[in-house]
């Protein structure tokens, strides 16, 4: 059975088709990248898959179950998590607490036990605390654990968001531009992290502008232009596809050479 299958997904805003009839599949351990010029509909596609937007047409199927437009928290319970292009960090919490909240599904319990600080509540919190510290160490943030999340650098926040998503041990992880705004060293760290997570069996769905990174780590690439899928396949195939080059790679490589 396919892990995640996107079937003919589409949405229109005010009569304009932002995404139209996009289909692809994601298998465990794969890194599938969605690329395309700015405004191609990548983030909109992500928002539909992750339940933030209700798709106008098509289906999202997770492990054989139709989860189209399901609320994000229900998707989380079924093993789908995501990060955000413009960061959605809990600014009102410490770094450690942000990571702990990723363990919500494991640590939640009767609210009465929490109110009265019963041993069961403390046990749940302790387990999440330990898990969160391990994760912070994995993304290199263990020394920032007690800092206010709002005070972290951009690159650190990106890693924190990934750590929070990993805490759920998701089956599918959607990463929306995880390396955007990061320097070369940080990008490489994130690059390794993604590969490592995929190697452990988690499927990764990635939106990323850094073409070198995409070409290096993706097992499969889906190309969008003007909301429609214009190509898909292995990195080498896609990079040779004339339609892709016309729509996207030509301009992007020029931009890359500048950076």
């Amino acid at each position: 059975m396919t892990l995640l299958s996107v079937e003919g997904l589409g949405i229109a805003f005010g009569g304009i088709k932002a995404v139209h009839d996009v289909s692809f599949k994601v298998e465990p351990g794969e890194i599938v990248s969605v690329i395309g010029p700015n405004g191609a509909g990548k983030t909109t596609l992500f928002n539909m898959i992750s339940g933030v937007y209700q798709p106008g047409s098509g289906r999202v199927v997770l492990e054989g179950e139709d989860v189209t437009g399901m609320a994000p928290f229900r998707l989380a319970q079924r093993g789908m998590s995501r990060t955000f292009q413009n960061l959605q960090i809990f600014q009102n919490m410490t770094v450690l607490e942000n990571a702990i909240s990723g363990f919500h599904l494991q640590e939640k319990g009767p609210v009465l036990a929490d109110l009265l600080h019963l041993p069961s509540s403390r046990r749940r919190a302790r387990a999440a605390d330990a898990g969160a510290r391990k994760l912070l160490a994995r993304v290199g943030l263990e020394r920032a654990a007690d800092r206010e999340a709002g005070n972290l650098s951009y690159g650190s926040l990106k890693r924190l968001e990934i750590a929070r998503a990993l805490a759920m041990k998701p089956k599918v992880l959607l990463l929306d531009e995880p390396a955007a705004g990061c320097n070369a060293v940080e990008t490489e760290e994130i690059d390794h992290l993604i590969a490592e997570v995929a190697a452990s069996g988690t499927a990764i769905l990635l939106v990323e502008h850094d073409m070198k990174m995409v070409m290096r780590i993706s097992s499969h690439i889906v190309v969008l232009d003007h909301g429609e899928k214009i190509a898909e396949g292995a990195p080498a195939e896609v990079s040779r596809n004339p339609a892709v080059i016309a729509a996207y790679l030509g301009t992007e490589e020029g931009a890359d050479a500048d950076g």
Partner: peptide, 23 residues
């Protein structure tokens, strides 16, 4: 400081992110 309280403060920080961690 409890799991339930953390969930409350998380939704205060970002309702959308709270949803993605399963709250």
């Amino acid at each position: 400081q409890s799991p339930s309280g953390r969930a409350l403060r998380a939704l205060h920080g970002s309702e959308i992110a709270a949803g993605t961690v399963g709250i």
